[in-house]
Structures are given as structure tokens and as C-alpha cells.
Computed example of a mutant assay.
Amino acid sequence: MTRTEEFEQLRPLLFSIAYRILGSVTEAEDAVQETWLRYELSPTRPASAKAFLSAVVTRISVDVLRSARLRREEYVGHVSSAAGSLTLTSDPDGPPAALPTSAAYAPSKTALNALNALNALTVHYANELRKNGILINAADPGYVDTEINNHSGYLTAAQGAAVLVRLTTLGADGPTGGLFSEDGPVPW
């Protein structure tokens, strides 16, 4: 397999890594393109293209975040849900127990939280980037009335956005590396 074929096969993975770190399609595409250039110019072929390219796109994305901080831009993190919290869903009386059963929604949120907690992406980058004044958190907007839940949510979009606004406006001494709802920290 040629380098181009290897790269194209891994492009979706690389884009997803960059997008999860940067939160911007344009910046993620730029990071993936820069990764390709570095891979193409590498004098030796790495033993594992997947490991090499994942490390390169991660480093490029982190460097973009650092640069954004120098330009005084902000980074929030991603949106998740308490419905994906293994701690809360294990409790039969916990908040997710009141939600309608879904074969796709809760497992997808659990997988998202697992990517962040078990692979420590949010926590790892939060710890690494705090020294640069960048806070990275996940937000749980709550059970918002949307089409995906057939408008059964009890919160308006504005109410759900409140936690995002709060996380966006945190000072440099605010919390980092966590999952937060409007009521405070949510266990992973």
C-alpha cells in the first residue's frame, strides 16, 4: 500500500481526532492537510502509519489551540450528556432513569464519554493546555426539547445552552477536564 493510500484510508480517523480537539471543521481539515504534508516529507516510513499520523495530527491540533490562546480566542470543548455517564446510568434512581429508553442515544453518549474518560482526551488536554490558559470541558445541556427526542424534553434550547455559555465565559482559573451540567459536575 502506498503512503497516499494509507493516508486516505486513515483520513476519517485523523479528521475525527482533529475535530474533537479543535471543534472546527475548517481547522480540522487544515490540521489533516498539514499532517499529510509532514507524512509525505518524512524521510522514513513509520512502523505504524496509524500511530504516527494520529500523533502528528494530535500535536498539530494542540499547537493550533495554543496559537488560538495567543490570539485571545476561546475554546469550549464538546457537548455530551449525563445519559452517557456510566456512574449515573448504573443507578436505577439516577437522572437518566427517567429518560425514554433509546437503543442508540445513550450508548452513543456513553461511547463519547468513554473516549474522553478512558482515553483521557479531555482530561489529558485539559491538563496539558491549562498552563496556556486554555480550559477544556464537556457540557451536558440536559434533556432539551428537540426533534431527536420527539419534543419530549423539558428544557428549551436557551435553557440547554446556559451551561455552554457558562463554560465559554469561565475565567482562566475555572475548572478544566470535566463534564458539567447547569447543576455542576457530572461524573464520567
Rank of each mutant, 00 (worst) to 15 (best):
A111K: 04
G94E: 10
L10Q: 11
A31C: 14
T87V: 12
L70W: 04
R166K: 15
A111E: 05
R3C: 01
L129D: 01
V76W: 09
H78T: 10
K109T: 01
L135N: 07
A83W: 01
V144Q: 04
R166P: 11
S85Y: 11
H151Q: 13
P96C: 01
Y39A: 15
S181K: 08
S108C: 03
L118D: 14
S108K: 05
E40S: 10
L22K: 00
T87H: 03
A117T: 10
W188M: 08
S181V: 08
V62D: 10
S80C: 03
E29S: 14
Q9N: 08
L135K: 06
G153C: 10
T101Y: 09
S42T: 13
L170W: 15
S61G: 06
E182M: 07
L118R: 15
P175A: 04
V186D: 04
W36S: 02
Y19F: 07
T89K: 00
F180V: 07
P100N: 10
V123Q: 13
Y39R: 03
L155P: 05
W36L: 02
N132W: 14
N137D: 14
A126T: 06
A161K: 02
T2F: 09
A114F: 11
T146V: 09
R45N: 10
T156G: 05
W36D: 01
L10G: 01
A172M: 04
T146L: 10
G142W: 02
A104S: 12
L179W: 05
R45V: 13
Y154F: 14
A162K: 12
E34V: 13
E128I: 06
A157Y: 09
T44K: 11
L41V: 07
G84P: 02
A82S: 06
G174Y: 12
S42V: 13
A68M: 09
W188G: 06
E6P: 02
S152P: 05
E74Y: 14
A138P: 07
S181D: 08
V144M: 09
L121W: 15
A104G: 11
G142Q: 00
P92H: 01
S48F: 13
G142V: 01
Y39M: 13
V57I: 12
T44G: 11
V62W: 02
E40T: 06
D93R: 12
A126K: 07
V64Q: 05
S102Y: 06
S54G: 06
L129Y: 04
L112I: 08
R166N: 14
G84A: 00
L14G: 04
S16V: 08
R72P: 09
W188F: 07
G184Q: 03
A157C: 05
L135M: 02
N127D: 06
P43C: 09
T122W: 08
G177I: 03
T101S: 09
E29R: 15
L13H: 15
E147F: 04
D145M: 15
A158N: 15
E6V: 03
P12S: 04
N149W: 11
E147Y: 05
T101K: 10
S85W: 06
L99R: 12
A139I: 00
I134R: 04
L155G: 05
L65W: 04
L118M: 14
A68T: 01
G142F: 01
E34F: 12
E74G: 14
